[in-house]
Design a protein around this nucleic acid. Structure first.
Lengths: 206, 206
DNA sequence: GCCATAACATAGCACTGTTATGTATTGTGG
DNA sequence: CCACAATACATAACAGTGCTATGTTATGGC
């Protein structure tokens, strides 16, 4: 059996260089095109095709990078003895991360990436689910509460808030609505109203 | 003082023709470009510039059209004796309208249209606010509830749901989470849990 | 040391939105 | 009534886009 010879290997440094340059151009609001991306880097336009298979592949890589950073940001949220506070803090971290780089956020949730990487969504939800489970085990939530559903609902609230604020319709102060909605949601899960309100306002530090 | 003469007037029919054709191409997933848009219509590419000032102007007109249709869809929601049900129905109508034409929805909330037409958002919120006021007057909500805030929160929930479902991360069944979140929100406003649940499930017909 | 194969560079293609330029049309003031 | 000025519209060109065809260079296994 003939095994084809592998003769040249891609340089991973070039790949990360392009991604970081694209991320930088995204931050500085420069339009990212094939030619502006490679300009000044010394590499030619073909590099985008050998490393990403085209511009769409680069955007996919950017989305992956965005989800990775989001997961890191959520992981850095402190775990305290109050899981309800932590759940609100995770929501706040979601907002902070998204509003810190709204352009990357827009790329992440750009349409037409359906099912491209369904694991990314689950990964994002994972720490939310664990925190919800913890709150349930501590007796803050009723035993019939589904942690995954609650995590999803928390995500929905955070995403709706940051979407409407980032794209313009709602002013930045509207983020405070998150406190009321989350508190109502957690109370409906069995937490005591005063306790829930205190935990949420404590975790909701933007 | 010299007043310039107005000698030729634009034909409004051409404007609506282009908008409707663009809307149709949006529905049929055809890529909308300057040339594909005017192809077959008999008008030349310059028409887009005389009527919209360019492609960006056409997208703005599309957004306006989208918000107008959304307002009409919300206006068609029946007003019953149960304002809490109506509030949930408005949320459901928002989802239905958005998912019926997800591409138009994406255009509407496309980024970089910040403050382009801030009245559009208020217009969208208006019937939500009125319904919230009605529920408050009927004693379903506490007297300290701010209808505008509650309407905004309802909008945030609906928008978060439809965004995550339309762009892929969440499956369509996730729309059912709206019932739990809205019920929790309305209960937090003073409505009785059983009554709120019944009203929301009644209004939440997708 | 071959030499097949991948990495890379160059030039061109079809397409995009936009604009410059020329023509046709039309309402109105004299 | 009608000449004219200003607008609507058509044609063609321009700069820029992503992408691909083609040629060149470099490299690692036999």
């Amino acid at each position: 059996m003939y095994c084809g010879r592998v003769v040249r290997t891609k340089d991973p440094a070039v790949r990360t260089l392009l991604i970081e340059r694209a991320a930088h151009m995204l931050r500085t609001r420069e339009p990212i095109t094939l030619r502006t991306l490679v300009a000044g880097t010394g590499v030619s336009t073909m590099a985008v095709y050998t490393y990403f298979g085209g511009m769409e592949g680069l955007w996919q890589a950017m989305r992956q990078e965005g989800f990775t950073r989001l997961a890191e940001a959520l992981d850095q949220v402190a775990t305290t003895a109050d899981p309800v506070r932590d759940l609100a803090a995770l929501g706040a971290a979601y907002l902070t991360n998204a509003l810190a780089s709204p352009d990357l956020y827009r790329v992440m949730f750009d349409a037409a990436f359906a099912l491209e990487n369904p694991a990314a969504a689950d990964e994002t939800l994972h720490c939310l689910v664990r925190t919800a489970e913890r709150a349930k085990e501590m007796g803050r939530f009723r035993s019939d509460i589904d942690p995954l559903s609650l995590a999803t609902q928390t995500w929905v609230i955070g995403h709706g808030l940051v979407s409407l604020v980032a794209t313009g319709p709602l002013p930045r102060e509207a983020l405070d609505h998150g406190i009321a909605i989350l508190t109502a949601l957690f109370v409906s899960c069995g937490d005591a109203p005063e306790t829930a309100h205190r935990s949420v306002t404590e975790g909701w530090r933007l």
